[in-house]
């Protein structure tokens, strides 16, 4: 929850609600990108961005190398698997 996980924004789902699809090591899910959008960086410009995702919200933009490093550390910590498992199992139905 507190460490978050890096993912890449691959599509904008709803520009008004600031919802986008993020790919986290192959797991795709919808996240809210309101916290990484600004006047200088509008919703449309976010596709391709690497972001740190906390509980379904992109909280910070990161560069690609940073994302790779972070994923590696999270994998070692056992956090990446737990986070992706939580994404997959999340009850929405």
């Amino acid at each position: 929850m507190c460490l978050g996980i890096p993912g890449r924004i691959v599509a904008i789902d709803d520009a008004r609600k600031k919802l986008a699809t993020v790919d986290v090591s192959g797991v795709k899910r919808q996240v809210n990108i309101a916290c990484v959008v600004s006047d200088d960086h509008p919703v449309e410009a976010c596709v391709g961005d690497w972001v740190l995702v906390h509980v379904g919200f992109a909280m910070s933009r990161i560069d690609e190398a940073e994302a790779a490093e972070t994923l590696k550390v999270l994998t070692e910590l056992g956090e990446a698997q737990a986070e992706m498992e939580a994404m997959r199992l999340s009850a929405t139905g």
Binding site: M1, C2, V31, H54, V55, G56, M59, L89, T92, G93
Partner: peptide, 28 residues
């Protein structure tokens, strides 16, 4: 995984009360 998933559950189950247990510091 996310409070958004709880909101989605509420939309799918209009006859139920969906409560999200919110914990965490400023990160969440």
């Amino acid at each position: 995984y996310s409070p958004m998933d709880a909101l989605a559950l509420a939309k799918k189950n209009p006859d139920r009360e969906v409560v999200f247990f919110a914990i965490g510091f400023e990160t969440t």
